[in-house]
Simulated assay, not measured.
Amino acid sequence: MAPDSLQLIASWPVSLAGLVVELVLIIALTGWMLVKVFKLDAGTAYLSSFPGHLSFILGIAAAGVGDSRQIVIIQVIRILMLTIAVPVGAVFLPIDHFTPPAPTDFLDIGQLLALGAGCVVVGLVFVWLKVPAGFVLGSMAAATAAKLGGLYVEAIPTPLVTVTFILTGALIGSRFAGITRAEFMSAAKGGLIATAMTVAIVTVVTYAVSLVVDMPFGQIWLGLSPGALEGMGALGIALGYDTAFIAAHHVIRLLLLSFAIPAVVVLIRRREAAAIARQQ
């Protein structure tokens, strides 16, 4: 995200309003379903309902919010359904080969150390304030503020990004250790139903937006889709849609989730504390 990314917010007000409504409905309805139907605790259910930011969610779960194993299964089911279905569908479309844009400027060692130090300091402040997953949220807040503030525009060096993804994948895989077949099947059913609900909500909201704005239904759906940015971008290119529209909506979706996830976690923690106080 570049400092001028926020200027895109004013470009598509109706579809962005639809994006906000969609996220509220997805989180509220799928979270409620997982609590009522599958009897998951609120932390597990609502962290499983967020359409995106898996590594961020796992960081919060690792700090003791919800059952990280259940969250991983449900979230991975959602990602697999989207990322597998999109390429399979793309096989039947006339997609030309293209080279994805790659960064050319990278942070140097001094910038990395300064950014790392800032993340540590803000993380410690968040821990002191007893914010859930303080280091995760603090680091993300510090890096985002620095990026949007124009303190740096370069990208993270590729080897460092690669190592980060490897460690994130190892963390995700480690959560499957000790999971029984019955436990996996139960969580997988929740994941399938939650994903189906999410896709249905996106489709309904897309239809409502398409009645107001003069855009192809497919372009709006790809922009409001619950994840799989790379696949949706590829389909957008294949179908001749405005890829800036699609990319901008996915960036804003992730930005909104960055604020929504910790806010929901704080609310869950407060409800749990109030319930314990009433029992005493």
Rank of each mutant, 00 (worst) to 15 (best):
2 A>D: 14
5 S>M: 14
5 S>R: 00
6 L>S: 00
10 A>W: 08
14 V>E: 07
17 A>G: 07
17 A>I: 07
24 V>T: 08
27 I>Q: 02
29 L>H: 05
30 T>F: 09
31 G>A: 13
34 L>I: 03
34 L>F: 11
36 K>Y: 14
37 V>Y: 00
38 F>Y: 13
40 L>W: 02
41 D>W: 09
42 A>T: 10
43 G>L: 10
44 T>R: 00
44 T>L: 07
48 S>F: 04
49 S>M: 02
50 F>Y: 06
52 G>C: 03
52 G>L: 05
55 S>F: 03
56 F>D: 06
61 A>H: 03
63 A>N: 05
64 G>F: 05
66 G>F: 02
71 I>V: 03
75 Q>C: 13
78 R>I: 04
85 A>V: 07
88 V>K: 00
88 V>W: 10
94 P>A: 00
95 I>L: 14
96 D>S: 14
96 D>W: 03
96 D>H: 14
96 D>Y: 11
96 D>A: 13
97 H>F: 15
98 F>L: 09
102 A>E: 12
103 P>H: 04
107 L>F: 03
111 Q>W: 10
113 L>V: 15
113 L>Y: 09
117 A>V: 15
118 G>M: 10
120 V>G: 05
121 V>D: 10
121 V>M: 11
124 L>K: 13
124 L>T: 04
124 L>C: 13
126 F>D: 04
126 F>E: 09
128 W>G: 13
135 F>Q: 12
135 F>T: 07
139 S>P: 09
140 M>W: 01
145 A>Y: 02
147 K>I: 05
149 G>W: 00
149 G>D: 05
157 P>W: 01
163 V>H: 08
166 I>C: 08
166 I>N: 02
166 I>Y: 03
168 T>G: 06
168 T>S: 02
169 G>W: 01
171 L>C: 03
181 R>N: 15
184 F>D: 06
187 A>W: 14
187 A>N: 10
190 G>T: 09
194 A>Y: 12
194 A>S: 14
194 A>H: 08
200 A>G: 13
201 I>A: 12
201 I>L: 04
205 V>W: 12
208 A>M: 15
209 V>N: 05
209 V>T: 08
216 P>C: 00
216 P>R: 10
218 G>M: 13
218 G>R: 06
220 I>L: 15
224 L>S: 11
229 L>G: 08
229 L>C: 05
234 A>N: 03
235 L>S: 06
237 I>V: 12
238 A>N: 07
238 A>H: 04
240 G>C: 01
241 Y>C: 11
241 Y>N: 11
243 T>D: 00
245 F>Y: 12
250 H>A: 04
252 I>Q: 04
257 L>R: 01
258 S>G: 13
258 S>I: 00
259 F>Q: 01
261 I>T: 03
261 I>F: 02
263 A>Q: 01
263 A>G: 09
269 R>Y: 11
280 Q>G: 14
